[in-house]
Design a protein around this nucleic acid. Structure first.
Lengths: 127, 127
DNA sequence: CCTCTGATTCGACGAACGTCAAGACAGGCG
DNA sequence: CGCCTGTCTTGACGTTCGTCGAATCAGAGG
């Protein structure tokens, strides 16, 4: 419900992936790779990985940009850009309440990514 | 100083991360983010995500380059480059046996990444 | 209305990435 | 030995990324 994110190519993981057959169990088809790779790419930057963790582990499940910016030696616009990347990857959700903007993690997608990487101890994947 | 990927030939996840406190439970420290982000980045390309899946789900836990190349509309060098990226991220291991080169997944790291993304239903992260 | 603060967008720059063609290296086979 | 097949490296190209400064947008409060 952020105002201008409607026109952005937002990754719609909910409708796309019913859920995740583990990566090591069945070969990931090209379409699913095209949908999920951006999410991994979004986590592929140290700053964004920390931002994601700060948001997901925050009290009440949400964090204000004003709390996310100071811990880094980066300018406000740069943090905002990283948050936008996380938003477009479908990993977080933004909401403005008065003066401040709050970011909240989307647990569904984290679960999907975790399930995709999970390895069954029962499967005979070892030599 | 958020750009720290200077001299990082090979990610050494074994010695570095004892294992993974979930991302949503405790804030990921900068050093851990610097170590783990390259692994996510390596998975952040559709081709590499499929390669990773093809290797991890292959019979006997290993796949030959000769089997990995044809499914893509890419040249041999490009596939080789992507495999090198996965290797440098610590996600796969390569071994030459005679004429062919075989790639094998490293389950430890996949488990670490999955654990990092996992969400405990017990934690009070939901509202 | 104006101003102040917080957050995003815009424009620009250097660095890194994905891709290919051409060449180099490794090993099997005549 | 020489050739052939498979894989990797090198050099180059256009594109994308991470970062910043400056400008802009969105509310709150005088």
């Amino acid at each position: 419900m952020s105002k201008q994110q409607a026109s952005l190519p937002l990754v719609d993981l909910n409708a796309e992936a019913p859920c995740c057959p583990p990566l090591a169990q069945r070969r990931v088809p090209a379409e699913m790779a095209a949908v999920l790779a951006p999410a991994f790419k979004a986590l592929g930057d140290p700053v964004r990985l920390q931002l994601m963790s700060m948001i997901a582990s925050a009290e009440g499940g949400e964090a204000c940009v004003c709390d996310l910016t100071p811990p880094f030696d980066l300018t406000g616009p740069t943090i905002s850009h990283h948050l936008k990347t996380l938003r477009e990857a479908g990993l977080v959700d933004a909401e403005r309440r008065g003066t401040w903007v709050y970011y909240r993690a989307r647990p569904q997608i984290l679960r999907q990514l975790a399930a995709l990487l999970s390895i069954e101890p029962t499967a005979a994947t070892q030599r």
